[in-house]
């Protein structure tokens, strides 16, 4: 699991690569939270290179989203691989987390 970040068009884009499972979900959450600044108004989690996510990883995403929601920052995920999209759909999180098909779409929708 690897986390990198950059700021584009008013949004913070955090890209995650590899697998997020029970063993590294907390590390993943900490890594993402550590790159988020207090004044980031929009955070996009880019999952293009995320190959697997377990329910523990989904929980980490909920916690990240909750943290942002508390200070009314926007949050979305983008570029989900088919299998990851299927996981989101089954668990029903496609209804509670905003999903964009590409990073460009996400930035266009959220950036200022």
């Amino acid at each position: 699991m690897d986390v990198t970040s950059q700021r584009t068009g008013g949004a913070l884009i955090v890209s995650v690569e590899g697998r997020v499972d029970g063993a590294n979900a907390r590390k993943f959450q900490k890594a993402v939270e550590s790159v988020i600044d207090d004044d980031d108004g929009a955070v996009i989690l880019d999952m293009e290179n995320l190959s697997y996510i377990s329910s523990a990883g989904l929980r980490s995403i909920l916690l990240i989203a909750k943290g942002l929601q508390k200070r009314t920052a926007q949050f979305a995920v983008c570029s989900l691989q088919d299998a990851i999209g299927e996981v989101f759909r089954i668990v029903g999180f496609d209804k509670i987390v905003t999903i964009h098909s590409s990073q460009g779409d996400a930035v266009a929708a959220m950036g200022s």
Binding site: L62, R89, I90, V91, G92, F93, K95, I96
Partner: peptide, 28 residues
């Protein structure tokens, strides 16, 4: 509630997944 759909096996040996009911995992 966000769970994988059940598998239905009819008496003739045909197998299908039952449709999801679009519920969200519980507790969120």
């Amino acid at each position: 509630g966000g769970h994988d759909p059940p598998l239905l096996i009819r008496s003739d040996g045909s197998v299908s997944l039952l449709p999801l009911t679009d519920g969200i995992a519980l507790g969120v």
